[in-house]
Amino acid sequence: MNRFLNAFGQCLQFLIAAMLMIMVVLVFGNVVLRYGFNSGIIVSEEVSRMLFIWVTFLGSIIALRENSHLGSNFVVRAFGPAGRRACLIVGRVLMLGICWLVFSGALDQTRINLPVAAPITGMSMGWFYASGIAFSVAGALILLCDLFTLATSPMATVDRFLDETGERA
């Protein structure tokens, strides 16, 4: 499963890079056209905003996978091995609850906004909220793998979850 998640993370990194490139081309091209030729790319702002939202949520998936999200490890490190493991498991379970909240809210908003068209592109506004669904499903999968690793691995592997470099077991 770790191999699949690592490959998935690399695909996400490539997708994010492509989205960022499209955003740069659209925004830079729009600036050049506005100031140089008194025209512009009409869909530039709307497409860039949608891509930015997706880049943010997809980047959050990568941060969760690489264990590079914000955390206060100094409290967890104060415990013994069993306490560290328990704290990490409780933290992952709480994050699973947050994933459920994000999923249910994003699903509701996607359903509501599917028939709503964006003003310029005419694209369904449901695509904006679908990024929350993508994040919560992928995040839950990562967290479930983390829980399995935390519950079944020796303490040396568990301590890697506290490593500041974000390396995975």
Score class of each variant (00 low, 15 high):
Val27Gln: 09
Val27Phe: 02
Gly29His: 10
Gly29Lys: 10
Gly29Asp: 09
Val32His: 02
Arg34Asp: 02
Arg34Met: 05
Arg34Ala: 11
Tyr35His: 10
Ser39Pro: 00
Ser39Met: 09
Gly40Met: 09
Ile41Gly: 08
Ile41Val: 14
Ile42Gln: 14
Val43Met: 12
Val43Glu: 14
Val43Gln: 14
Ser44Glu: 12
Val47Met: 06
Val47Thr: 12
Ser48Pro: 02
Ser48Trp: 02
Arg49Asp: 02
Met50His: 06
Met50Gln: 09
Phe52Ser: 11
Phe52Met: 11
Phe52Leu: 11
Trp54Thr: 04
Thr56Phe: 15
Phe57Val: 05
Gly59Cys: 08
Gly59Arg: 09
Ala63Cys: 13
Leu64His: 00
Asn67Arg: 13
Ser68Thr: 13
Leu70Thr: 08
Leu70Gly: 05
Ser72Cys: 03
Val76Gly: 06
Gly80Pro: 09
Ala82Phe: 01
Ala82Pro: 00
Ala86Met: 13
Ala86Leu: 15
Cys87Pro: 00
Cys87His: 03
Leu88Pro: 09
Ile89Ser: 04
Val90Trp: 13
Val90Ile: 15
Gly91Phe: 10
Arg92Val: 07
Arg92Gln: 09
Val93Lys: 05
Val93Leu: 15
Leu94Cys: 13
Leu96Tyr: 07
Leu96Trp: 07
Cys99Pro: 02
Cys99Asp: 11
Cys99Ala: 15
Trp100Phe: 15
Leu101Arg: 12
Leu101Lys: 12
Val102Tyr: 10
Val102His: 11
Phe103Met: 09
Thr110Asn: 00
Arg111His: 02
Asn113His: 10
Leu114Glu: 00
Leu114Val: 12
Leu114Ala: 00
Val116Tyr: 11
Ala117Ser: 13
Ala117Thr: 08
Pro119Gly: 05
Pro119Gln: 09
Ile120Asn: 07
Gly122Glu: 11
Ser124Phe: 09
Met125Asn: 13
Met125Ser: 03
Met125Val: 05
Met125Gly: 01
Met125Trp: 04
Phe128Ile: 14
Tyr129Glu: 05
Tyr129Arg: 06
Tyr129Lys: 06
Ser131Asp: 05
Phe135Ser: 03
Phe135Cys: 04
Phe135Ile: 02
Phe135Asp: 03
Ser136Trp: 05
Gly139Val: 05
Gly139Ser: 07
Ala140Gly: 08
Leu141Glu: 01
Ile142Cys: 06
Ile142Asn: 08
Leu143Val: 03
Leu144Gly: 01
Cys145Pro: 00
Asp146Pro: 01
Leu150Asp: 07
Leu150Cys: 08
Leu150Gln: 08
Ala151Ser: 15
Ala151Leu: 14
Thr152Arg: 14
Ser153Trp: 09
Pro154Trp: 08
Pro154Gly: 14
Met155Leu: 12
Thr157Trp: 01
Thr157Val: 12
Arg160Asp: 06
Arg160Ile: 04
Arg160Gly: 05
Phe161Pro: 13
Leu162Arg: 13
